[in-house]
Design a protein around this nucleic acid. Sequence first.
RNA 1: GGCGCGUUGGUGUAACUGGUUAACACGCCGCCCUCUCAAGGCGGAGAGCACGGGUUCGAGUCCCGUACGCGCUACCA
Length: 501
Amino acid sequence: MSTDKIRVRFAPSPTGYLHVGGARTALFNWLFARHHNGVFILRIEDTDRLRNDDAMVRGILEGLQWLGLDYDEGPFHQSDYYEQHRAAAYQLLESGHAYRDFTPKEERSDENIKQQIAEAAARGPKVLNPYRNLSKAESDARAAQGEPYVIRFKVPEEGKTQFRDEVFGVQERDYKDIEDLVLLRSDGHPLYNLSVVCDDIMMGITHVIRGQDHLSNTHKQVLIYEALGKAVPVFAHLPLILAPSKGKLSKRKHGEIVSVTTYRDRGFIPDAFVNFLALLGWSPSSGEHADREIFSRAELVSLFSLEGIHKANAVFNFTEGDARNWTDQKALWMNHEYIKTIPMEKLFPMVKAELQQSGLWRDEYEDERRAWFEHTLTLLRERARTLHDFSSHGRPYFTDDFSFEFDEAAVKKNLQKDPALKELLPQLADAFVTLDEFTHDSTEALLRKFAEEKGVKAGLLINATRTALTGQAVGPGLFDVVAAIGKSRTVARLKHAAQLV
RNA sequence: GGCGCGUUGGUGUAACUGGUUAACACGCCGCCCUCUCAAGGCGGAGAGCACGGGUUCGAGUCCCGUACGCGCUACCA
């Protein structure tokens, strides 16, 4: 057993927001670190310092914070270590693992880069770089004269690289299939494969957990580790998260739906989203937990292992343009489960924030009306899929006026169904006024008796009252609603509703 | 073009080292409960495991091929 602490990192590039795939990568790293009592490091791969760093990083930080993925070290900025990366390139040059390439820079437009590469490759077999075996003396001389060059890694001609990926198994690749990659640009700027390796070495990273798109890059990085004489970390590559079209998730194409802050802003509970994300590409390997869906954060930490990571890409099944099912239905269901079951003391502040945002919050809910408030939440949470539902469906409970909406279909179905309601509702209101105890049981007894006397079905009055009080056709049991709304608002709303009949 | 990775119902996943009619969750449909909706309970439709071969008494599980998807192939990350 090694006593060394496990050290992992999440290394996003600063794109201005944390997308769902990145969040999942961060989560798996975090779970792994916490499970092993290790260290979780945040490193920003800001290769281009020209862009506004702070603004670009903020979205990522916000996302991580909301998800509750706290890092132990960082955030570090890759660009702060360019000197070390450069030094490493020259070290490799000295040791003969790399060489100067004086070939003039080939300009490529970013537009169709993939296509250009494919075409160039299709044109013919790879030829060895002419500067590969330039003598040290000549190379040094030309460099001394100021001739521009890049530093390329000298991939051996014979043999192959091998590493074991914890998810995908043993990976092999012939050296001849790996090009002499550029380590340092002609302007002295270090390139990705060099920088990650240097940073991971410097930060003592023991396990590299990242997206599968880096699986084939790993061979190059292994080569660099070996040339630098450093131990190779353990690698675990994660399957990708795809859009419903099975394509890559992209902000440009799919919009804000791929950003985790969207889930925060649309009323998700962080634990619910974390739970959902954890099950995208991972499951508790085998046995007793295989059939469960709901896992607390603590359970995820204790159950998480690299063995449970799936190999195939997962589809994140959101529906663009659907108001009700705007994101993956399972995520919505899970959020509902969390809203229903988390302890009141955890739900309370979340609903408070939601009501504050919609101008419905009153400080008395925290003191003298706390019991009433919490009871109302227990009524509403049963049906809430997001925190927004507390301010939309919940609005009639938290406002004294008629600022809540009357659903057209509900009015038609429950109020305009029977013209007699025009008379009955005000009479019912007057009857309610006489009640001293305004409770679930007393109001029910009164209403049922009233219905009997008037010779109408209780259901007629019950449904009409629901719509009169909440504007909706659906909701909690009516007498719970009546008791929660209270006597004076109930009376006022019944009379008001008579005008809608 | 080359190299690599993947492929279980609509979606997420399960199925110990090959062995009963492929399981669970979400979603969908129906019934029960009921003042509505939700929740809950019960039941149903939906994959024969991408396709085609092979090995085997027996394959989703092993082998080969094909298709499709994805990644890398850049002085991007």
